[in-house]
Design a protein around this nucleic acid. Structure first.
Lengths: 115, 115
DNA sequence: CAGGATCCTAAAAGATACTG
DNA sequence: CAGTATCTTTTAGGATCCTG
């Protein structure tokens, strides 16, 4: 069940392809990013949209995206705390990639079985 | 050392994004594909180009690509056997995606640290 | 040359329970 | 609400040796 994983080890770091892959690395990463392209989301919003994704993995994904400067997080003061995750301008750069993933997937699905 | 992994579990299968991600899934997958976009390659050619990639993983990657209909393999008769892996027309559909990965990576590298 | 077969390790991912 | 802490399971990846 579930979703894709794109995992990092230690890449060439300098290779642009590696950098882009890092951004969409990890199971559910593209789905989390898609949700965020629709606007700011709280932790619970994201969980609600991805029901089978555990809090732990969501946290890992968000931490990774924040660490890469693709997503920012703001917390409301007071209690209970509310969070708001949103894409940074850097994160917005991923849109064309997500769109291309979609288009390529469609093309692959259209293509007939063999050569 | 190394390269990216984009790993499958069982995706929604119908989602185009998942289909596209599957195509570039697994460590070294994009590098193998890049080599193949330059023309047919034998098993050893591919190994030579990716020195730190083990035969086992290369086999896994190629098997996966063949299973998805993205790559075909022909073997020379006689001995020793020679192989020739090449992209199918379906596999050629990945080019725009690989290019977009590159462009997005470049853009991310250009972007200044914060928002 | 082109792999297959094994075994082993290292990471991800998942389940569950708990906290500020 | 928004996570953290643990523990267990799963899976990918790597090393080594062997075969058609």
């Amino acid at each position: 069940m579930g979703h894709q994983t794109v995992t990092w080890d230690r890449p060439s770091a300098d290779c642009p392809v590696e950098v882009a892959l890092a951004a969409i690395s990890g199971r559910w990463a593209t789905l989390v990013l898609r949700d965020l392209t629709h606007g700011p989301r709280s932790f619970s919003d994201l969980r609600a949209g991805l029901p089978t994704l555990s809090a732990k993995v969501l946290t890992e994904r968000l931490d990774g995206l924040v660490a890469q400067g693709l997503v920012r997080c703001s917390r409301s003061p007071g209690f209970p705390v509310r969070t708001s995750y949103s894409l940074t301008s850097k994160g917005l750069l991923l849109r064309p990639l997500l769109e291309q993933l979609y288009r390529t997937g469609e093309a692959l699905l259209d293509e007939v079985p063999d050569h």
